[in-house]
């Protein structure tokens, strides 16, 4: 291969593989986000629950937030098989991303829940609404719309952290770039394209989130 810095033929040749990897990156992001949104809400509500449980959940959230996602990925990847649980790299990745980000989204939900005025809880109590209905009918419908932009930001962050899963062999866009680079000993094109692909998706997405923020306000 020629010694030029940028080889267009090579760049186009590896593009399909990189796009395939990007597809897997997006799949991991979407699935991870679903876990993070649902589990985050559960963690937020539990922290409003009975005291011993709330303290345990709080401790878990703090631990996960204070330690690297990469280590948590390795943790699941190496430790789960010890208990006889063998999962694919994608599944491990989705669980790790989902749980890690759930600890962040739970804080967002908590802020949203705290922003619901106390009078709303009291009015619901005065009407004898059951506890579950107070959450689903009164508090969450007011709290969740306000936190959508913040949740959106975490989805974008998660998207950019999917490449950590190359560490356990997931062939996401960076995994594919690495593969191409190692095969042809040319790294400039694959990593540059990978970076541009991230920028191409995450920059417009973050502009969208900023517009949403202006619309609904931030917590």
């Amino acid at each position: 291969m020629s010694q030029q810095i940028w080889d267009w033929n090579y760049a186009f040749a590896i593009l399909p593989l990189l796009l395939e990897g990007l597809g897997l990156t997006l799949v991991a992001t979407v699935l991870g986000s679903i876990v993070a949104m649902v589990l985050g809400l559960v963690l937020a509500v539990l922290q409003r629950g009975p005291r011993p449980l709330a303290v345990v959940v709080r401790g878990f959230v703090e631990l996960v937030r204070s330690t690297p996602l990469l280590v948590q990925i390795f943790f699941l990847y190496f430790v789960l098989p010890q208990f006889g649980i063998v999962l694919s790299a994608l599944t491990v990745g989705v669980i790790a991303l989902g749980v890690h980000y759930a600890c962040y989204t739970s804080e967002v939900y908590r802020a949203g829940i705290d922003a619901v005025p106390r009078g709303q809880w009291e009015a619901a109590t005065a009407l004898s609404l059951p506890r579950s209905r107070v959450w689903t009918g009164v508090v969450l419908p007011q709290a969740v719309p306000r936190v959508v932009p913040a949740l959106g930001n975490y989805v974008i962050s998660m998207f950019k952290e999917v490449p950590l899963l190359t560490a356990i062999g997931l062939l996401d866009v960076v995994g594919r770039a690495q593969e191409a680079g190692d095969t042809y000993f040319r790294y400039v094109e694959p990593y540059t394209i990978a970076g541009l692909l991230f920028l191409l998706l995450s920059y417009p997405a973050s502009l969208l989130v900023r517009r949403l923020e202006r619309r609904v306000g931030t917590i």
Partner: peptide
């Protein structure tokens, strides 16, 4: 259930219409 309260700050549920506010507890409770 047998006690009703009206608050200084009204505390209507902003995520529901007037109708929703009025039928919420009678149907649910």
């Amino acid at each position: 259930k047998h006690i009703g309260m009206v608050f200084q700050q009204f505390n209507l549920f902003p995520n529901m219409t007037v109708r929703g506010n009025l039928i919420e507890a009678p149907t649910r409770v």
